[in-house]
Design a protein around this nucleic acid. Structure first.
Lengths: 108, 108
DNA sequence: CAGGCGTAATGACAAGTCATCATAACGATG
DNA sequence: CATCGTTATGATGACTTGTCATTACGCCTG
């Protein structure tokens, strides 16, 4: 049996954020656009946009600063609040991952 | 934002076991039947049976000792292997719960 | 020995969820 | 003002999941 697990945070029973979603946000910021970030994560644009939309709605804050039109067609960057969330969440995911793995080895 | 999370174990990308499923097994064993255990967990019999079936298939071991017919109509009990799994998993879930909660408080 | 009872087991269908395709809107640039 | 790559969103189909209904089982009772 493979020791896999997922962790996410919920608000009102719906997924607000997760480790994967935060990595998606990070990829979008690195690539400079939702399109490129989605491709880097291996999901279609629609899915990436929907995830971002859900996160912003359920967390009640703006995470991406998007721009449509322009010389490059547009793009997306993390807001200051978004970057803070991503940084903290990635640290949390990393530590939680290590802790759970340790408990798993100790228990089984 | 509410600090909720779920943990489960996967095999080949499919959910093999989880804290809720192990509590279901425990309830079935306490009540003596899948029917009563399902009702205690607030899910229809079909769902409970399906979860048990999935677990046994994906973990590759028999978890319940079921009996159909008889004076009471039948019933279900945990096998020795099943009880061992339930006990270990519940301990794991409890410790993981505490560890993640502690990391959450420290990070956010 | 046949019918009844409460359970396990499973087939079939409905509903809700989720991914994918397709399309419109945008705006600086040349 | 046409172009380009992006954001944004509508619509549809596939898949998953919960729910209803049915069958099988075996001891017990009359």
């Amino acid at each position: 049996m493979e020791p896999r697990f997922n962790i996410w945070f919920e608000v009102d029973g719906e997924v607000a954020t997760s480790c994967w979603r935060m990595r998606l946000l990070s990829a979008i910021d690195e690539q400079g656009s939702i399109t490129a970030g989605a491709e880097a994560m291996g999901v279609p644009y629609r899915v990436a946009w929907q995830r971002v939309h859900e996160m912003e709605e359920r967390m009640g804050m703006q995470l991406l600063d998007t721009q449509t039109g322009g010389p490059e067609g547009g793009g997306a960057r993390l807001t200051d609040a978004g970057r803070d969330q991503v940084d903290r969440m990635l640290v949390f995911c990393d530590e939680a991952d290590r802790a759970i793995r340790e408990i798993y080895l100790r228990t089984f």
